[in-house]
Design a protein around this nucleic acid. Structure first.
Length: 444
DNA sequence: TCAACTGGCACTTTTGAACCGG
DNA sequence: ACCGGTTCAAAAGTGCCAGTTG
């Protein structure tokens, strides 16, 4: 076992183009990512965001949209998103709140969504917001379309990866940074559980206009049977009560303690980010409410931006959080770690021994990483494939990139996440590490 | 028995081709 | 031939809901 930061720069052979600029190329401390529509996300988050997952794939709403700054205008970057479990539990909706319903199911094949513009120069990413509108979620573990596979009734949060790379082939050597936004965590569901979420979605998603109460069109299925209408009336009772509030008040929660601060939502968010967690339908969140504080603090939106320089593969990191963290919710861990030091960077350093520790995979090809600097994707660290399969799964161009979708990595056991829940990572080995690829699939 | 899931439905927006006039 | 604007139909994205599944 060897810590990443212990590795010395010792790449043999010519460095890839993305590294040719020399050591200064790694100094990207100014890189910043902010989430667009943070208020909307926060409104959902306070209620407990749910995302529908279907077999053919469903878009997210709200969809992930970010702003980037601090990139090198002329350098090329690749943007990726993956979904990582927030914790190791399965949930159920019971009496207007989410409850733990057991251990999480084994993680489906980890997939990464590659932004279709990738690779593009920094100037491209910075000139306008970057939308991941086309990202789709599915519960079909045999999905052939490259959608991100999730389990229903499990909690996830998206991670955004910025990789400085001239092309898809050089990603594995490239500088990358990972960002998460606590308010983007959600529960994957096949049908909405919380009627408040349904209402929020209807109110804000243009495709759902037809379900709005005060639409120009008449209500659908208005001639239902009385029994059905009665059932509907019962189920939508809460919605009707909500509808009596003004539309600008839609985010008002029914949780106790909220009334005292209603009407001051935006201000409260900026002043006290911790408090708002109280309104989460997550009992755990309310009990262990820890909020991310802004590392730099200049931009209010940065309050929600937890920069992670942790090169942990998807579906691996949360369990490491779980292993070392004190809370069952890694999102809380993320927030607390960031807030504890007031600096995402120092937080990263403090976590390196725990999170960024990798098995002593291949001593002949050591990885380079120094604490406080963006991590370098080592040759073997994140690729589930050997050197003979150099990220071919997400190379090429355009939608035709997965006409023949890649099969799940054959070495991926179906029960590895169960092992993870059982905290089996103290003594990792090569096979174990390779089971948690960051970029195992190309998707767009 | 029941929670979770599926598929069809009605409704919406988005997209792109076709058409027209300058 | 080119360009910009309009129209229209198909495609795709929504939540609803009854039926199915485990």
């Amino acid at each position: 076992m060897q810590s990443i930061r212990d590795f010395k720069p010792n790449f043999s052979g010519p460095p890839p183009s993305s590294m040719a600029a020399g050591p200064d190329a790694y100094l990207q401390g100014n890189m910043r990512m902010t989430l667009e529509d943070p208020e909307l996300w926060k409104n959902f988050h306070e209620i407990g965001t749910e995302m529908i997952i279907t077999k053919p794939g469903r878009r997210m709403f709200p969809h992930c949209k970010i702003n980037l700054s601090g990139l090198i205008p002329c350098a090329k970057y690749i943007l990726l998103v993956d979904m990582v479990p927030v914790d190791g539990f399965r949930y159920k909706w019971n009496k207007e709140k989410w409850e733990v319903a057991g251990k999480a199911e084994p993680q489906p094949p980890c997939r990464t969504y590659l932004h279709p513009d990738s690779p593009a120069p920094g100037s491209h990413w910075m000139k306008q917001s970057v939308s991941f509108l086309k990202l789709k979620l599915t519960n079909n573990t045999l999905d052939q379309h490259g959608h991100i596979i999730l389990h229903s009734m499990h909690r996830y949060h998206p991670r955004f990866h910025i990789v400085q790379a001239d092309d898809l082939f050089s990603v594995r050597w490239s500088v990358f940074q990972t960002f998460t936004f606590p308010e983007t965590s959600f529960t994957a569901v096949t049908a909405y559980q919380n009627t408040k979420i349904t209402k929020l979605k209807i109110d804000h998603n243009p495709f759902a206009k037809g379900f709005r109460d005060e639409g120009t069109t008449k209500k659908r299925r208005s001639n239902k049977s009385p029994a059905c209408l009665e059932k509907r009336a019962k189920s939508s009772d809460a919605l009707i009560r909500d509808s009596e509030d003004s539309r600008t008040d839609f985010c008002r929660s029914s949780y106790e303690g909220y009334d005292g601060e209603e009407g001051d939502l935006p201000k409260r968010k900026e002043v006290d980010g911790v408090k708002e967690e109280r309104y989460s339908p997550w009992a755990a969140d309310r009990e262990h409410s820890v909020r991310t504080e802004s590392p730099a603090g200049a931009d209010p939106r940065d309050i929600y931006n937890t920069e992670q320089l942790v090169p942990a593969p998807a579906s691996y990191q949360p369990y490491r959080f779980h292993e070392y963290g004190k809370s069952p919710s890694p999102s809380s861990s993320v927030g607390s770690s960031s807030s504890s030091s007031g600096s995402g960077r120092s937080t990263f350093e403090s976590r390196v021994p725990d999170v960024a520790t990798v098995p002593d995979h291949d001593p002949s090809k050591p990885r380079t990483h120094e604490a406080g600097k963006p991590a370098v994707i080592g040759h073997h660290i994140y690729s589930p494939y050997g050197a003979e399969q150099p990220l071919g799964q997400w190379s090429g161009a355009g939608p035709a990139q997965y006409p023949h979708p890649p099969p799940p990595p054959p070495h991926l056991p179906t029960d590895y996440s169960t092992q993870a829940v059982h905290h089996g990572y103290h003594h990792g080995n090569v096979a174990e590490w390779s089971q948690y690829p960051l970029f195992s699939y190309s998707c767009w």
